[in-house]
Design a protein around this nucleic acid. Structure first.
Lengths: 350, 350
DNA sequence: GTGAAAGCGCTAACAG
DNA sequence: CTGTTAGCGCTTTCAC
């Protein structure tokens, strides 16, 4: 076992070149190139001959050469801020990435995943600006990571999750319709007979936190109901418990609760029970996210499901359209789905 | 909003070239190239001048050109069989990928993620053989996906998880030491006083299932204890419950249980309780995986933690060594960690 | 419709 | 130590 450190450099070309195919098929390199890129104006007969030669030689085009000549890379960069990368084990995020990767695997594009730390974000910027990708998808939980938005002018970029501040420079993004989702959950509580619906909101400096509170408010206001029973948490079960405590201490009647995510609902559950109240009989509860916390809670939690896989697929789709100069709306909102479970299992009251 | 479908082709070169830097610095292109690739033999003085020119022009090298000329791509392919991609929401798998990506972000290599469906696996093969990557990491749950192992001769490849059959062609892989982990958990049960330790094993056609059973056996045999209390499940909670039922029906004493994963332990819990037995007083239980099922179970489950992030990082490290022709062992086993919780909370008996 | 020729931006011998 | 000279493998006008 030697300690040869130098990169292994094979001698002769390992893979057949376009030129060899041309020779094999008895045509020019230009023609082979046309066939490979299925250009319209090539005789059917020639196409066949070339394809046979390709098959015989087991030819596969060299990406580097192709992209050098065509000034197109066929690469899509997936930029993941390091803070978000840490949350990779979050099923939501992982599934979004899965959606992106699977959608792209259907296309000619290749997915390049970059972790961009605060420190080395310059490296990422250079990579993107250096013409190493045809476009980029930026996913992040903290939408402060929109440092990249100004790159949108130079390179097609699609963001996952809307920016907190709708910036002047119009950036493309696709997101879940948090407002509508929250409103749906709240309306469900109302339909099932709740009249005093409280909410445990998420951080108001995060779009999902902000939007879900807005959706809850909207649903109540549109029925002329009170929307002042609000407490804010930070998406953790503990904060959910705290918030629930504060809510109950207000001493006002509560018969419905919408929490901005399932974790906080789980936290609220324990407090509700500690107060001798029953779910759903005394208080119906609805969460948001449809994750493990909700499905294993007892009683199982009614919640809002986010189409995370589809979200990723959509991001890929939008970016590809952008790259190919096809008309595309600036913002794409994905619909959510209400999952009804035991925590709201009550017949509508009269 | 037009419907121009053609790729946007900008006119003039958008990014400064190495040649422009050379002119700016008053040296030849070769010299600039040497500086960029920090070759040792360049005068300090010249290095500075070039670097300043680079900074002034905001130059960033073109990957395609570089790789075309150097026959090196600086790309590492992450091959994810579609069956595995579906499990992306599995925290274990997602964390492994995270580990790979983060380790690679420290290097000059770029991560290319490919979903390889059974059908289109030919596409992946061509991509890899086409010289589009310097190496590949293949991650999969089902190690039947070692279709790629024969590519190992052509391209450096590292596999995640050991192959079921130790194939002749020596392929590199890194894995968690399942045998040792299972043995550790089992020994822990013995140390806490268990004498009749049963196991609920995983599918025997999956390496983790097979190895964890082996580890359990080894621990018992080395103390001269009986290792016949085995039932097999399929890693689901339901199968765990079934297996536990069969175990108890044997009518033999059981005071300890090792399950091949936490899910099956969760399933076993309910059956144990249904039989009027207490955990840990009557039966101590240890699982494997350290996931949500174990930590939220009641009593909380003693289990084996897998260093998933480190596993990914190691895979990246091994591959890079391979690519750079540094000596590297064929198999790398990562150590596990015992997490002691309430399900084995009992003082050692006399 | 097809071929010829001219590069894309960079690296890698080889001289000097 | 630095410059010169050839390409890497492919696309792309431009003629024919």
């Amino acid at each position: 076992m030697t300690t040869d450190t130098s990169p292994s450099r094979q001698g002769p070309p390992r893979t057949p070149t376009l030129e060899m195919v041309a020779a094999e098929a008895g045509v020019s390199r230009a023609t082979v190139s046309r066939v490979v890129n299925d250009s319209p104006r090539v005789t059917e007969h020639v196409v066949q001959a070339v394809n046979e030669a390709i098959a015989r030689l087991n030819y596969v085009p060299n990406r580097a050469a192709r992209s050098l000549a065509s000034r197109r890379t066929q690469v899509i960069a997936l930029v993941v801020p390091e803070t978000t990368a840490k949350l990779f084990s979050d099923p939501f995020f992982a599934t979004v990435v899965q959606g992106i990767a699977m959608a792209l695997s259907e296309t000619e594009y290749t997915l390049n995943m970059l972790i961009s730390s605060e420190l080395r974000s310059e490296k990422t910027r250079r990579y993107l600006l250096g013409g190493n990708a045809d476009g980029a998808i930026v996913v992040s939980h903290h939408s402060g990571d929109h440092d990249f938005s100004h790159l949108g002018a130079t390179l097609p970029i699609v963001f996952g999750g809307r920016p907190l501040i709708q910036n002047d420079e119009d950036s493309y993004f696709v997101d879940v319709d948090n407002v509508a989702g929250a409103a749906t959950a709240t309306e469900h509580l109302l339909d099932r007979g709740a009249r005093h619906v409280a909410t445990i909101a998420g951080p108001q400096d995060m779009p999902p936190g902000f939007d879900r509170l807005a959706g809850w408010s909207r649903a109540l206001q549109s029925r002329g109901l009170d929307d002042s029973l609000v407490e804010v948490g930070d998406f953790t079960p503990e904060s959910g418990a705290e918030a629930m405590r504060r809510l109950l201490e207000r001493g006002r009647p509560i018969d419905g609760l919408f929490t901005a995510n399932d974790q906080m609902a789980a936290g609220a559950y324990s407090v509700i029970r500690d107060h001798g109240l029953r779910i759903p009989d005394d208080i119906m509860v609805a969460g948001y996210d449809n994750n493990y916390f909700g499905s294993t809670a007892s009683p199982s939690l009614t919640t809002i499901n986010q189409p995370s896989h589809e979200l990723g697929a959509k991001m890929a789709e939008v970016l590809v359209r952008l790259i190919e100069n096809k008309p595309t709306p600036l913002v794409t909102l994905m619909p959510t789905e209400l999952i009804v479970r035991a925590s709201t299992d009550r017949r509508p009251t009269a």
